[in-house]
Amino acid sequence: MKLVDSILLSASVGFLVIGINQVFAGQGKESYWIFMFSIICLFSYQARKLKRKEKAAVAEQTPNKTTGTKPKKDASNSNYTKKKKRRK
């Protein structure tokens, strides 16, 4: 989780707590905008999270140029033998 995501999530929870406190204090109609800020922060957090997941899925599907297209050697299908450790 990045810093901006943490800030959005904590701001959403903070605005929600403040809004609930205002409702119990008897100012329910005046605290409407506080609840809206809470929902806006929560939706922004969810949108950033979804965009990050989509970006990771696209990066998984596209081949990386640094790795190339060569398949990795499999030790069981070749004449590869491990080097023996030398005694001291």
Rank of each mutant, 00 (worst) to 15 (best):
T69A: 14
A75N: 00
S38L: 00
T66S: 10
A56W: 06
I39F: 10
D74G: 00
I34D: 01
C41A: 00
A47I: 09
L42Q: 06
K29E: 15
M36D: 02
Y45E: 00
K51W: 13
S78M: 13
E30M: 04
N64G: 05
Y80Q: 04
V58T: 03
Y32V: 14
Q46H: 11
S78F: 01
A56E: 15
Y45L: 03
M36P: 01
Y80E: 05
A57Q: 15
G68E: 00
S31W: 09
K49E: 11
F35N: 01
R52N: 15
Y45G: 02
E30P: 06
Y45I: 01
T66R: 11
K55F: 04
I39W: 06
L42E: 04
N79R: 10
K29M: 07
S31D: 00
S78C: 03
D74R: 03
K29L: 10
L50F: 08
K72Q: 07
L50N: 13
Y80R: 03
K70Q: 07
K73V: 08
T62D: 02
I40M: 02
N77E: 14
I40L: 12
V58G: 05
F37W: 07
N64R: 13
K29N: 09
R48S: 15
S44H: 02
S76C: 03
T81P: 03
M36Y: 09
D74T: 09
S31N: 09
L42M: 01
A57W: 07
F43R: 03
L50Q: 09
K51Q: 15
Y45N: 02
M36K: 15
E60C: 13
Q61W: 05
Y80W: 12
K49Y: 11
A47P: 02
K70N: 01
T66W: 14
Y32Q: 12
V58W: 06
P63Y: 04
R48A: 09
Q61Y: 03
L42D: 05
K53S: 14
A47M: 05
N77A: 14
I40T: 08
Y32F: 13
F43E: 02
K70H: 03
T66L: 09
K65S: 05
A47S: 10
F35G: 00
R48L: 11
A59P: 00
N79H: 12
Q46Y: 13
T62H: 08
K73I: 14
T66D: 07
P63N: 09
F37M: 08
I34S: 03
G68S: 01
A75F: 01
F37H: 06
K55Q: 15
E54V: 10
P63L: 08
A59C: 05
W33I: 08
A56D: 11
P71G: 07
K53V: 06
P63T: 08
L42G: 11
T62L: 13
S44W: 04
P63G: 04
A47Q: 02
A75R: 06
N79Q: 07
R48E: 07
R48N: 12
K29G: 05
F43W: 13
